[in-house]
Design a protein around this nucleic acid. Structure first.
Length: 551
RNA sequence: GCGCCAGUAGCUCAGCAGGAUAGAGCAACAGCCUUCUAAGCUGUGGGUCAGAGGUUCGAAUCCUCUCUGGCGUACCA
């Protein structure tokens, strides 16, 4: 609708033989106050200076010209020079018809993405333990964003990068090996840094069960390899299972280990040395990242000859470029933001366009139980895992809660609230609106009111402010989804659904929907309810949350 | 020190593609179930949008500085 109005304004300016700005400069927005109409534009204020005309006169002229358009019931000029648009009821009614006609496709806009290829990498947790709450936030966010981009016609691939190589894996294997020995009452020494927690014991026990004591007959090297293979297999599969419980499925699982075996690390080092943007210092090899926006240069090869994390990560990102994506999105945890400038610099040095990459940083998640913050420590193995979260509050509530906040603000996750089955809990509030409508429809069937008997001419029975306002809210849905596909503010959809559900609950409370004495009115209201239900369901689906018909 | 993110009602936060009187939920208080699910609804109170400048016809929104908090600033990943 916003686009249509922009178009209309542009045509009007042309018709009035005024200087026309580019359409993208025309601003149309939702006014804060209802008596300012459904949409408003400040075009007269912005253009006044250029045209040397008072904004007020310009606004009046434009309003007069636009008010003949059947799209609007009223177009008026307001105080300093705003133009306020009131959409005609007829158009509002036609939106309801659109919603019920398009059903689950209402709110899609495939033309926007037009098949452009987008890669979204998210979660990518170390396979050194179960998924934690920040991983969970990333999973909910990345998956929902992917859904939204898909609905806008982008060709999206969800990707998980498995960091199954490097120092952390060595530590993991050492920890398990130690635990294995401990289980068999072989004397062990405490590891200084190593992984703790029940899952280490569990994995050790499972390996023991699968392999028996024969594992000790292997050479040290073979045994380490065996443990590594088995442990990673267990951990990665556990992550996959948990994610799928959470409703998240990845298209690609990329293994760092495999990339390394293909020699991509050596390749990157070779490319880098050709660029002359690396140098030796203090026995290590450094990258001139500071020339490309980083705060300082970075080591890429340590004095012991091993490469730092940056190198395989560059190798990995090059594969993203080579696969020809139009947009590369990385969703990262809060502890990774220092990594972005290095990566961008490296990419630029290697001759790729850093501007194709977009980074989304998720902030911390704090778990609250009975208003108390739960302290977590990975080293001690004390953490709340995604699996526990799913068991405690369920996938629907967890996903909704993770998506209520902007990605770049910290999130407090109140477990008690997420478990509540009352209006305080926004998930239930929204889902209940959907279920309630299903229930109303059931009641209508009992009363012999069939939605198939509905006729468009009944729509004018929807005349209350509440009814028209609900349609206005429904009308915003498609442009909201489009907006989110560029801004990545997935939280706006969550908020929108809460608002829509609220409007509906209030309406329900005030007006009787099914009343067989007033057939036309009842059918019109059922038609409205159906549309509300469709939009709630479509929205929840994008968020990866179920829309139950009974609660 | 430098960098990133944030600071809006008692609490948790929306709003920040500059707009016309700053919003919701919770908490507090007062109400609504012989009526399509009370997992719901109605009403009341509550604010120097951290502070100071600047840009603008117009700033919670953009810019600069200050203060406060979180994180980063590894030859960790």
């Amino acid at each position: 609708m916003i686009e249509i109005i922009k178009e209309k304004i542009w045509e009007s300016l042309k018709a009035l033989e005024l200087q026309t700005p580019s359409k993208s400069k025309i601003n149309v927005e939702y006014p804060k106050h209802k008596n300012h109409g459904d949409y408003s534009s400040n075009i007269a204020l912005n253009l006044a200076k250029k045209i040397r005309q008072a904004p007020w006169t310009l606004a009046k002229n434009l309003a007069k010209h636009l008010s003949t358009d059947p799209l609007f019931s009223e177009v008026s000029a307001a105080k300093p020079g705003f133009i306020n648009f009131h959409i005609s009821n007829k158009v509002l009614y036609s939106i309801l018809q659109d919603i019920n006609k398009f059903g689950h496709e209402f709110g899609t806009n495939f033309a926007k993405g037009a098949g452009k290829r987008v890669l979204i990498e998210f979660v990518s947790a170390n396979p050194t333990g179960p998924l934690n709450v920040v991983n969970a936030r990333a999973a909910a966010f990345g998956d929902s964003l992917a859904n939204i981009l898909l609905a806008q016609g982008y060709h999206v691939e969800r990707e998980y990068y498995i960091n199954d190589a490097g120092h952390q894996i060595e530590l993991l294997v050492e920890s398990i090996e130690n635990e294995l020995n401990r289980l068999e009452e072989i004397e062990v020494e405490e590891l200084e840094e190593g992984y703790k927690g029940e899952y280490i014991t569990e994995i050790a026990a499972r390996i023991l069960e699968a392999e028996g004591t024969t594992i000790h007959q292997l050479s040290k090297k073979d045994m380490t390899q065996k443990i590594s293979d088995l442990a990673l297999d267990i951990l990665i599969n556990d992550q996959k299972d948990t994610l799928s419980l959470f409703g998240v499925c990845f298209d690609n699982w990329i293994s760092e280990n495999e990339l390394r075996q293909k020699g991509s690390v050596e390749d990157v080092l070779a490319y880098l040395s050709e660029t002359e943007k690396i140098y030796d210092k203090d026995g290590a090899v450094w990258l001139c990242s500071s020339e490309f926006g980083d705060v300082k240069d970075r080591v890429i090869m340590r004095s012991d000859g091993t490469v730092t994390y940056l190198v395989p990560d560059l190798a990995y990102h090059i594969t993203k470029y080579k696969r020809g994506f139009d947009r590369i999105v990385d969703i990262l945890g809060p502890d990774h933001h220092g990594h972005i400038p290095k990566l961008k610099a490296g990419i630029a040095i290697l001759g790729y366009k850093p501007s194709l990459m977009q980074f989304i940083l998720l902030q911390h998640v704090t778990i609250l139980i009975n208003d108390e913050k739960v302290k977590m420590s990975k080293r001690e193995g004390k953490l709340i895992t995604l699996r526990q979260l799913i068991d405690e509050v369920g996938t629907d509530a967890a996903r909704f809660f993770f998506l209520m906040r902007k990605s770049n603000t910290p999130l407090d996750f109140d477990i008690e609230l997420a478990k509540k089955r009352t209006a305080e809990n926004p998930v239930y509030y929204v889902q209940y609106a959907h279920a309630r409508i299903a229930s109303i429809e059931k009641n209508a069937r009992k009363e012999k009111l069939k939605i198939s008997d509905f006729k468009p001419k009944y729509l004018h029975r929807l005349s209350h402010d509440e009814e028209l306002n609900i349609i206005r809210t429904l009308m915003k849905y498609p442009e909201l989804v489009t907006h989110i596909s560029s801004s990545y503010d997935v939280n706006l959809l969550t908020t929108y659904l809460i608002d829509l559900a609220g409007e509906f609950h209030k309406y329900y409370q005030k007006y009787k929907i099914v009343n067989k004495r007033y057939k036309e009115l009842s059918l019109a209201r059922l038609f409205l309810c159906k549309a509300v239900q469709t939009v709630i369901k479509n929205g929840l689906t994008l968020l990866g949350i179920s829309a139950p018909t009974k609660m």
